[in-house]
Design a protein around this nucleic acid. Sequence first.
DNA 1: ACACGTTATGGAATCGATTACACATTATTT
DNA 2: AAATAATGTGTAATCGATTCCATAACGTGT
Lengths: 330, 330
Amino acid sequence: MVTINDIAKLSGVSRTTVSRVLNNSGYVSEKAKQRVVEVINETGYVPSEQAKSLRTKKSKVIGVILPKISTETSSRVVDGIDRELSNHGYHILLANANLDTDKEIEHFKLLQSRRVDGIILVATNIEERLIQTIKDVNVPVVALGQDVPGVSSVLYDDYHAAFDVTSLFIKRGHKRIGFIGVDETDRAVGYERKKAYFDAMEKARLNVDPAWVQKGVFDIESGEKAMLSMLADSTQAPTAIFAVTDRLAIGAMQALKKKGIKIPEEMSVMGIGASDLSKYVTPSLSTVDYYNEKAGTETAKLMIEHIKNITEMTRKLSMSYGLIIRDSLL
Amino acid sequence: MVTINDIAKLSGVSRTTVSRVLNNSGYVSEKAKQRVVEVINETGYVPSEQAKSLRTKKSKVIGVILPKISTETSSRVVDGIDRELSNHGYHILLANANLDTDKEIEHFKLLQSRRVDGIILVATNIEERLIQTIKDVNVPVVALGQDVPGVSSVLYDDYHAAFDVTSLFIKRGHKRIGFIGVDETDRAVGYERKKAYFDAMEKARLNVDPAWVQKGVFDIESGEKAMLSMLADSTQAPTAIFAVTDRLAIGAMQALKKKGIKIPEEMSVMGIGASDLSKYVTPSLSTVDYYNEKAGTETAKLMIEHIKNITEMTRKLSMSYGLIIRDSLL
DNA sequence: ACACGTTATGGAATCGATTACACATTATTT
DNA sequence: AAATAATGTGTAATCGATTCCATAACGTGT
């Protein structure tokens, strides 16, 4: 590997001068500069960011901790993050927590040891241990998707989105509305969306049969199971189903199809996420677009502001959302 | 930031001893060790991988260049890569080429400057410039998805997969089979799969109406367009459609639905990719599973072998595939 | 002719780790 | 008891860059 010293020797100057050429700083004569550039091109020298980082204490790398790599949401978010970061010369160091809080915490340590300039946490469940870990970290942390106390966060408006979905059903005349949620330890998806559903129902003075409220775990199969339980448990079936994610909604649709229940004639369905899937299932699924890519970009922007110390305080940014009305809705 | 020197001072030993404790190497008395560990825990010291890398010339980071981040294939592949790499203490530095060869080449330079231990290229089009760049790079490179000359590659068996799909149609009695491909500059997806289609047709002595052969660009919309062109251009429509990707196939299905052509009664459809989408469209799409995650894992394994110099020569690894027969097929 | 600002260059310290080597001290073998 | 081996620790060089500081040559205003 050719180093700055080699370039210095070959071009007959000191490594200080080479560094000046590299960074376009200080005084360098036109002649020296040309000679150095020449040698650099001949040798194919690429300066070591590592050595540079060690000295300057800036790595130009941002760690991104994901709950799971291969989900549509993750990949959209990462796309958005990268789009913004690469504009500022930053790279992404990936860390997959795989839905395991221990790993999440471990990744904070690992990313610190790599001296990343900041850490973006795409969050799910927020435990006390995690919050403590974040406090101990000495680089800026920005969270996406969950409101982490004391940490700048980019948030989806889960409450209002879920409220709007439920209200939409109500406005269309539905009185019996079922709900498929996830565990409430997930504050955003589990707790907030559920609360909004209940609030909307209560506001419209609509009754909620406990059997209409079911729980799944983020995949299609569990949505199917939840739907079947709902049909089995309730004396009177709902006429509409609000599932907190598209995959749960599509699972519910699978169950309904198998039961011969017509969508949307006998049952309306809505999800959240605007997944690719939602557009191409039959009937196409009404859903909520969370603009994940935009959310990623905003998170990255916030991170850069923190790094540049433009923003000192912790900020909370609420994303907007958009309802997408398709055929699954009567 | 607390450094190894601080730890040394606080525990009253030299930094050599601290390093020994850190790496569990050489001789250290039990007493000294305990003292050092104690101080480390008190201070929350995290060793700098950067400084370590500079000295040891190993960064334990692998650069991954993706053609596009937010695709199902990419995220599955990255998942597989990470699964294997993290087992060996490696991290992934992400680089998004966004379907731009210039960027791809630029990323090679950038990753080199970060002194990654290896580069995994998830490839699409292979240009001469790219091959030259790879040659100039001085770290191991492994390609995934395309056969890059002189570079170890993990390959999908595009030819046989496509041949099998076409043959399956033929075996089921189809005589007029349409093809929706992509540009042949993509050797694997564009060229190989097309060649296999023609070879299978020829082997069965079946005629191919030029209008049956259409081209799209990796998205659903273009699949739809290609299908409409095929119907418009051909005097006699095919009874089966082989699209080289699931998204193209689903686009074709959309077109057929709009035209009121029944799948599979009037037209059978197959794709390649085993996307989530393929399972939940109606009718469910028959396709080929390329086991992307496994491919990612294998690529990572190959990379590690190269880094450890277990494998000196360039190797070509061909992945297996599996046909998934679903409702879109008569 | 003197002082001073501008331009050009290099020496040497520094960032935070690893590691070769030297030097004690203690334990074991003969 | 002397020779040898095992154990424990520190000094200093090193990795590849940046950057502070010193020094020198040169022009120019007075």
